[in-house]
Write a protein that binds this DNA or RNA. Sequence first.
DNA 1: ATCCAAAATGTAAGCGCTTTCATAGACCAT
DNA 2: ATGGTCTATGAAAGCGCTTACATTTTGGAT
Lengths: 345, 345
Amino acid sequence: MAKLQDVATLAGVSTATVSRTLNNPELVDPSTRQKVANAISTSGYQRNETARSLAMRSSRTIGLLTDTFSSNYFAPILDEAIKILHDFGYYAIVEATGNHANHKNVELQKRAWRSLINRQVESIIVLCAFMDDRELDEMLMEFPSAINIGHSVEQAKSRCITVDHYTGGQLAAQHLIEMGHRNIAMISGPADRLDSQQRGDGFKDELNKHGIDLPSSKVYTGNYSVLGGSQAMQKLLETGHEVTAVFAQNDDMAVGVINECFSRSIEIPKDLSIIGFDDSSMATSTMPPLTTISQPLKQMSQSAATLALNLSVGRKNDKPLAKPTIHFLPELIARQSVANLAKPV
Amino acid sequence: MAKLQDVATLAGVSTATVSRTLNNPELVDPSTRQKVANAISTSGYQRNETARSLAMRSSRTIGLLTDTFSSNYFAPILDEAIKILHDFGYYAIVEATGNHANHKNVELQKRAWRSLINRQVESIIVLCAFMDDRELDEMLMEFPSAINIGHSVEQAKSRCITVDHYTGGQLAAQHLIEMGHRNIAMISGPADRLDSQQRGDGFKDELNKHGIDLPSSKVYTGNYSVLGGSQAMQKLLETGHEVTAVFAQNDDMAVGVINECFSRSIEIPKDLSIIGFDDSSMATSTMPPLTTISQPLKQMSQSAATLALNLSVGRKNDKPLAKPTIHFLPELIARQSVANLAKPV
DNA sequence: ATCCAAAATGTAAGCGCTTTCATAGACCAT
DNA sequence: ATGGTCTATGAAAGCGCTTACATTTTGGAT
């Protein structure tokens, strides 16, 4: 593999000139520029980014720390982030620790985190569903350009890209109420997750505001998975509550609900209405298409990448990109899984 | 950030000794080892992997070139590959070029490919659905440790991890025949994709072998997407073919078929049987659960990662890992979307 | 011709590691 | 004591780039 020195010899100039031709062409005479260009193409020279990183004290690399790609929620975020980084000439080193909610995970995540730092990444974008908030805050404080998508923690608040789960919960409740539902159940996510709590609180509060009660007997816990959703639905049906609608705190569980209904010949939305959360890719391909609360994943991801870039040492002297939004608002996406009881056909 | 020199000074030894303590502890006296360990922990030293890579002429990094993470097919492969690389102390740099089947994509992919090479990756794992075979072969030949998952190309054959699509097609046909189906339709993937052709050929040949014809009037083309599946199904229904079963060449299209049937109150598998391909994550959460042909994605990914590691310069002197399998066989996963016409209940 | 600022190029010192080679002890057998 | 073999360490030369600084060249303006 040809190196800078080879090109220099071939072109009859010094390595400095070649380097300049590559990085600041305006500093070198057009004719030399041409000579160098020729030398480069005949030698098939490819710049060694490792050496460059070392010399420039900047890796132009961002770390991506995540649980898994196998998630309708994570995947589009990661896609978008990588695209943006690439557009700015940055690289992405990815660590995926696996999708476990156990203690072993903490250890894996910390190891991955360290190895990213050792690798001289200029920022780390954390996208982990199962990460202890205290732990996360500590980590973020340890690495001042690290940012998180999803959680919001005390100290590193300004580096957390979040969506307003509470408002999302309210939105779901509002829609159900508008459509004439009064007898409603909820299938919540894991009890120890903040986003789940917030979605639940928003939902409950909004219901209360309209004089509708959501007793704990009508709240079932799933684990954000399809299976969890159908199991929760099963329990709900067994208790014999006569609800007309259920709010599943994410789309995966909503799919579980739909499946369970299907196998019991409960028609949606005629017999039961269902509203989800996330607007994940499956929401359009359920039957019927799922009414849900969307998170602006793409924009969130763009914000994260932009913020990461702004905080990167390699870009310290470039003009910063537009200040990214930190806090996003969810939106109601009305499709066909909620019946209008108020205005019956 | 403390550097090796700082640690050396603190411990009262040379940098060589510190380096050895880190990389070949058996070469240094236990007492010095201890001194160094102390110096490391009091200084909070973290090794600079960039400098290390440069000095060792080995980046311990593998490039991952893919279209997107948002795919039930790609995501688990990527997950698994990264996990294995990590276990061997390797890093993964990921480039995702986006999910477009157009010519612009070729340009993007080539750029990403180059940038991975510049970054001194020791191997590249290519996982791109839309890549021209000739183009791919050239690329693979240019970088002798690059490997591909999915395609099989002429020259770089030994570095292509594939599944036998033809056999998969046969399997689907066999199952349908065993279950008593004779009047069968097929929804194929994009015509220009080899895997799709092979799945189709296997299916058709096996059918023929049993005296069943698959005229082109019973073959519909989708584009491997849910929407494509339902559109193809729509056309099929409009032509009024009296088929009892359809083979969708991937699970996404099978989902489309199921949806279309649902909205027309065609019961599966009572009125129509459907078999998919891939055994993607959604196959268990359709209603009814989808009978399909599984690809051993996890094993394929492991093979890819292992092969990549074996071919890496950084591991040239380590003993090679077990020789990975290159060619995988698909398997029938019988669930509940195919009715048994032979032995009616 | 002369001088000077600006433009173009070269020289060489790093970046933070690894590793070869040389050196110095330590230990044992003669 | 002498030599030889090991083991433990250090000195220093890179790895392939970038860049501060020094030097040379250029092209007016005088």
